[in-house]
């Protein structure tokens, strides 16, 4: 399960040398930054960037690596693979920061300028906006805007479970094995969930295009 690099970094950390652990975190930082970017509520995105989240998350890793190493040493079945454990800490940091910042925003939430797209639901819109803004086929600017809008609305209409599996797969870019671990299903089960979510997204997008 552990790559050689992870094994060496964690073995060294267990001996008190955390240099390689720092390297390992740097290696994961692009993926973690994307996760943070996708999950930060747009209402506070202006004051809180992905790097702020990563900084907090890495501090938490430093504070809690002892617990993780104990679980590893005890060969606990509950232990997550290292990347997924760091991802979990990152999500916890985001939740904490949301509580702090959005709590402060409550009193003037009405005055907070929110675009209609943000009002649709931050996660969905953000994913759709960032994902659909990229193109690997040249279809023209207008077509891109239409597609972006259609995907945003279609994602909004999907169930939470479908949306989450697409998010994990396409935005967080987790491997099928990692998604299976997170969802507690087999790898083929994770593949099927993804396929079904994708099929439903495609159907909704097609309906939207027909109705336009």
């Amino acid at each position: 399960m552990e790559s050689n690099a992870e094994m060496r970094a964690l073995d060294a950390a267990a001996r008190g040398d955390t240099t390689l652990l720092g390297d390992l975190l740097s290696q994961h930082s692009d993926r973690l930054r994307r996760i943070a970017q996708a999950r930060i509520d747009p209402r506070i995105a202006a004051r809180l960037g992905p790097d702020d989240v990563l900084q907090e998350a890495f501090l938490d890793v430093a504070r809690r690596i002892g617990e993780y190493l104990e679980q590893r040493n005890a060969q606990s079945e509950e232990r997550l693979p290292f990347f997924l454990w760091v991802r979990l800490l990152t999500r916890q940091v985001i939740a904490r920061l949301h509580r702090e910042h959005l709590g402060a925003l409550k009193r003037d939430a009405g005055r907070e300028a929110r675009s209609p797209r943000q009002a649709l639901g931050c996660t969905t819109v953000l994913i759709a906006h960032q994902l659909a803004s990229s193109h690997t086929t040249p279809t023209g600017a207008l077509r891109r805007i239409e597609q972006r809008e259609a995907v945003a609305v279609a994602l909004e209409r999907l169930s939470e479970d479908d949306r989450e599996v697409l998010m994990l797969r396409h935005y967080e870019e987790l491997s099928n094995q990692e998604i299976a671990t997170l969802l507690g299903v087999t790898e083929s089960g994770a593949s099927m969930r993804h396929l079904r979510a994708l099929t439903r997204l495609k159907a909704i997008t097609a309906d939207l295009e027909l109705s336009q």
Binding site: R34, Q130, L131, A132, S133, S134, H135, T136, T137, Q147, V151, L166, H170, Y171, L195, L198, T199, L201, K202, T205
Partner: peptide, 10 residues
């Protein structure tokens, strides 16, 4: 389905 993936993939 794959066209949809290409749209989704950042």
């Amino acid at each position: 389905l794959i066209s949809m993936i290409l749209v989704l993939r950042p």
